[in-house]
Simulated scan of single mutants.
Amino acid sequence: MDFHLIPIKTSRKKPKTGDVFLVQPIKGVYYYGKVISEKSNSKYELIKDFPLIYIYNQTTTNFELPNFLSNILIAPLITNYSPWTRGYFYTIGNIPVTDEEKNLDCGFKDFPITDFNNECPFFRNIHGERIDYKPQFNTSFGLCSYKGVNFEICKILGIDD
């Protein structure tokens, strides 16, 4: 799949919990995203200090902060800071994280390569702990860069070259 995210503006400022950002997969159409937790606090060192983000199926054509966010577009992701430093995410403000967002039924699909005592595949919650059901919103377990965000957004929007 080709890369489609269009840079908005670079930033070296680390995202904080509640930060609302824009991502532009289609020229002039911005999807809202939100930092749900600035650190995922996973038991896995590789991803524990990186933000958990939601991308919403809510768009804008300008840089206005919405009154509220709802309707998740893609499964939540744990990402690094490269989407901000490369300009693919642009923070426009901060809205406190709601209880609904904190309690979203989400998780990550994992395979026995990280846990040899379990069947393939199984699911983990956002802290890396095994859960015994398939969450409503789920994606592969691990750290997702801007390329992974591009893949997930383009897949759900049907953008393919």
Rank of each mutant, 00 (worst) to 15 (best):
M1C: 13
L5S: 03
I8Y: 01
K9Q: 14
S11N: 01
R12Q: 13
K13Y: 06
K13C: 03
K13L: 13
F21H: 07
L22F: 11
P25K: 08
K27A: 14
Y30Q: 03
Y31S: 03
Y31F: 15
Y32M: 00
Y32G: 01
V35N: 05
I36F: 04
S37V: 09
E38Q: 15
S40G: 05
N41R: 09
K43R: 11
K43L: 15
Y44L: 04
E45S: 09
E45N: 08
E45Q: 10
D49E: 14
Y54S: 15
I55L: 14
Y56S: 02
Y56E: 02
Y56V: 07
Y56R: 04
Y56N: 00
N57G: 00
T60P: 01
T61P: 02
T61R: 14
N62P: 00
F63D: 05
F63Y: 12
E64M: 14
P66L: 10
S70F: 12
S70N: 12
I72W: 07
A75D: 08
I78D: 07
N80Y: 11
Y81R: 13
S82A: 13
W84E: 09
W84Q: 08
N94L: 08
I95V: 00
I95S: 02
P96I: 07
P96F: 06
P96E: 12
V97G: 01
E100C: 00
E101C: 04
C106W: 12
C106G: 01
K109R: 13
K109N: 06
D110K: 08
F111H: 07
F111W: 15
N117L: 11
N118M: 11
P121C: 02
P121Y: 05
F122Y: 12
F122I: 03
F122L: 00
H127V: 12
R130P: 10
D132Q: 13
D132L: 14
Y133V: 10
K134A: 15
K134Y: 10
P135D: 10
T139A: 12
T139N: 15
S140A: 15
S140Y: 10
F141M: 09
Y146K: 05
G148T: 03
G148R: 00
V149N: 02
F151Q: 13
F151I: 12
I153V: 09
C154D: 08
K155F: 11
G158V: 11
G158A: 11
I159P: 01
D161Q: 13
